[in-house]
Design a protein around this nucleic acid. Sequence first.
DNA 1: CTGTTAGCGCCTTCAG
DNA 2: CTGAAGGCGCTAACAG
Lengths: 343, 343
Amino acid sequence: MSTNLKQLAAALNLSTSTVSRALHDSHEISTETKIRVRALAEQMGYQANPYASSLRKQKSKTIALVIPEIDNNFFTHAINGIEEIAQKKAYHVLIYLTHEDLQKELAVAKHLQSGRVDGILMSVTSQTSNVEHLDKLHQQGIPLVFFDRVAETIDTAKITTNDYESGYQATQHLIEAECTKIAYLQVSETLSISQKRLSGFRTALQDNGITPLDDYMITCGHSATENFEMIKKLMSSSNPPDGIFASVEKLAVTTYYVCDALGIKIPEEVKIISFSNLATAPLLAPSLSTITQPAFEIGKKAAEVLFDIIEQKNLEDAKAVTILNSVLTERNSTKKPVISDRL
Amino acid sequence: MSTNLKQLAAALNLSTSTVSRALHDSHEISTETKIRVRALAEQMGYQANPYASSLRKQKSKTIALVIPEIDNNFFTHAINGIEEIAQKKAYHVLIYLTHEDLQKELAVAKHLQSGRVDGILMSVTSQTSNVEHLDKLHQQGIPLVFFDRVAETIDTAKITTNDYESGYQATQHLIEAECTKIAYLQVSETLSISQKRLSGFRTALQDNGITPLDDYMITCGHSATENFEMIKKLMSSSNPPDGIFASVEKLAVTTYYVCDALGIKIPEEVKIISFSNLATAPLLAPSLSTITQPAFEIGKKAAEVLFDIIEQKNLEDAKAVTILNSVLTERNSTKKPVISDRL
DNA sequence: CTGTTAGCGCCTTCAG
DNA sequence: CTGAAGGCGCTAACAG
């Protein structure tokens, strides 16, 4: 058991209130006692019991981060940004993985009604369409910020990227590379970012007078092996696509595997563009054009906005939709990728 | 403000203790009241205040995960394992990133003396040599489990991989591929895993009658651009290596960038083997042989052992060193990589 | 089976 | 400038 206020106070011949105030640098405590108190506190390794403080102050100095998966460079980089801001604010970060499972998201949401955290950063599951559980949190007044995968109907802050435009650009990129039979790979039909990317894709096709083929719309699941089979079927059909738009990094990778297995040459026989935050992609797969979301910045921004809401500063933030721009990087054999310290 | 016990009790015409007991399914409460209580609790969305419970019970149902970086597939996969176990145990996970910075590790360690968590899972910084701060935590009786990057001198549970053997095998692999001038790339000299990997490397060279060259020992830092320059200098020297052992994935990637920049062909002019948990490595970089640590399993095991210590079960676990085996995957153009759902 | 009481450790009025 | 007292919400010992 670690030392508590009472013990410290006793050792100093002071009351707990004085000690507490001294440690909080209250102006109504003499410099002398402050020094005395702090010296002993330091020496005894005193750390205030966070649960007692939280109970008393009704503030936990903790935020929750709820994401669908962690084995994904977008989220990994976002966490870096979030953690940077949280650390600066001396907040703690509880991490919850929903594994793209709505049931888990429901459980987490329910739990978070307890007041365990002062705010929530969230990217929803690909299954999430009904958002009652999230609305309830919001109604309850818990600061809530969505990033990337947002619940559109909930009237709170959202940080996203320009998914429609990126989807359009990516498609345009393939068209300019002379693809005419372009397949679209996605993992969800309900996520708003999926819809926006897809919408950009569709409009770009339309603007170029290309009619989308139903057979070229592939909605994958979360099993790598099943996805492999779905894409394999696509690529080995009698009329295979000559361009692939992977709306998610992992599907681009799976496509690579499929092409490798079928002996299809990339980019000679099929060109690929993908949303991706894989830092190594440009070099390791020089034929992969990518759309990179500014994940680190999104994380930072999301955390900043959340803290604004928590601290009731910049109140307009509470309902703002912030859109950061993704970067399209075109790959070919002449352009060399550049190494950098941060994505 | 969410509903609390008192309100619930008032609404039910019961005492708080009865309600509390009912919710905890105490055997000394009639089935009837239990049902009544639960019904209303459910309806009112009652969630016990975790800070009050924690204060009262002196248990937080929370563990801390302290890692040096998250932008690293090993840790990413480990988190998946850890989270799986934590979820099963209904524990919460606080995540702390030290960014390879000893100062941050010190700050976190100090904070964790507060009793905020019931146990700690930790992988130390590459700078960590003095471990007083960690020893203090351990002395204080906080359950502590190290994984991968362990503090050897602290007498608590550790989960690692067979780093010496892997280092040996990796080197042997290069030698069998007819490399004679093998460089070793590392990020730290102090980490015990670094030392073990290096030791395996050295012994393998020795066993094959190869004298290690000082110029082939590169200790990199954390700046991608600086590392790039160091490796570039190595590769463009008058006597460049014909084999590279990257003890860390990111250095293998940097080496790829360097070779790309210098026009050095892999694997014709230089062969590379690397510790790596990059799922896509085998396909995207078919010339990269890898040593893959069972990160997911390590995470699971570490969490399991931590919970054993917390629950005082399998007491021998508290000091056990568990060693899981890494897998060496040899790459060449004839062997096809396999896709799988989990690393 | 249910209620009363006390206290976890801290912060914060209110008093001096 | 410092101390005493009360209570945040919950649980557990002690009554009945």
